[in-house]
């Protein structure tokens, strides 16, 4: 069964007709020639295929293209503005955050999505263990309104869905740390805020 869909890929609307079995990853790579997201495990375990779906990081290998009809997809190749690199990309270069480079586009997309989640105050497993049952939500560091302080532990935990077979983790972590500091600095507008949904949606 083939179905016509539209995907907005790195800011550009792309129309195509896909077999229902096609994943977003295969549609991008095999049909649209967008080869920045990589196929590693193809089972959602390695993170090499990570893209931003309407601003939120996801594994494109587990997302059917028909289910993403009408959505905006940002790959690592679409993060920068023209020839200018995104601060996260620049940080990976400065810190040598790769060896073979195969996991890198996924790492970078994931890191950009992760910074937006942290900026929206999303907790992580390591944040949660600190707040436990006595959290009053007012201690700034992990309150639902406040940004999360991205310590090394936070970055490691939040990036655990991206595997690097070369083991470049130390430099990846350093690069993300720099980009996080950059994003938290005065020049906040330099980092796009890809999280399209407000963190506190829903009636409450």
């Amino acid at each position: 069964m083939k179905i016509p869909i539209t995907l907005e890929v790195d800011g550009e609307p792309r129309e195509l007709s896909v077999d229902t079995r096609t994943t977003v990853l295969d549609a991008l790579r095999e049909r649209l020639g967008v080869t920045s997201p990589k196929k590693g495990c193809d089972h959602g375990q390695c993170g090499a295929c990570t893209v931003l779906l309407d601003g939120s990081r996801v594994n494109s290998c587990l997302l059917l293209a028909v289910a993403a009809d009408g959505c905006a997809i940002t790959t690592a190749a679409g993060l920068g503005a023209g020839a200018a690199l995104h601060p996260m990309q620049q940080a990976f270069i400065e810190h040598d955050g790769f060896q073979c480079g195969y996991c890198t586009p996924g790492q970078i997309c994931s890191a950009v999505g992760m910074l937006a989640e942290a900026a929206a105050g999303h907790p992580s497993h390591v944040t949660a263990s600190a707040s436990a049952f006595e959290s009053d939500g007012e201690d700034g560091e992990d309150g639902e309104d406040g940004e999360v302080l991205l310590t090394d532990d936070e970055i490691r935990e939040r990036m655990s869905g991206n595997i690097c077979r070369c083991g470049a983790y130390v430099n990846i972590r350093a690069a993300i740390s720099q980009a996080a500091a950059h994003a938290a600095g005065a020049d906040r507008s330099a980092v796009p805020h890809p999280h399209s949904r407000p963190a506190e949606e829903g009636a409450s």
């Binding site: 990081r57 949660a128 939040r158 655990s160 869905g161």
Partner: peptide
């Protein structure tokens, strides 16, 4: 979204903790 929701973090904190201990950031977003 559920793990980060204020109502869950304040009233049912073990649920937020459980969600955050599962899968990866990318998987939890889907």
């Amino acid at each position: 979204e559920l793990a980060a929701h204020p109502l869950i973090r304040e009233r049912f904190p073990a649920l937020s903790q459980a969600l955050l201990s599962g899968a990866s950031g990318q998987l939890r977003n889907l």
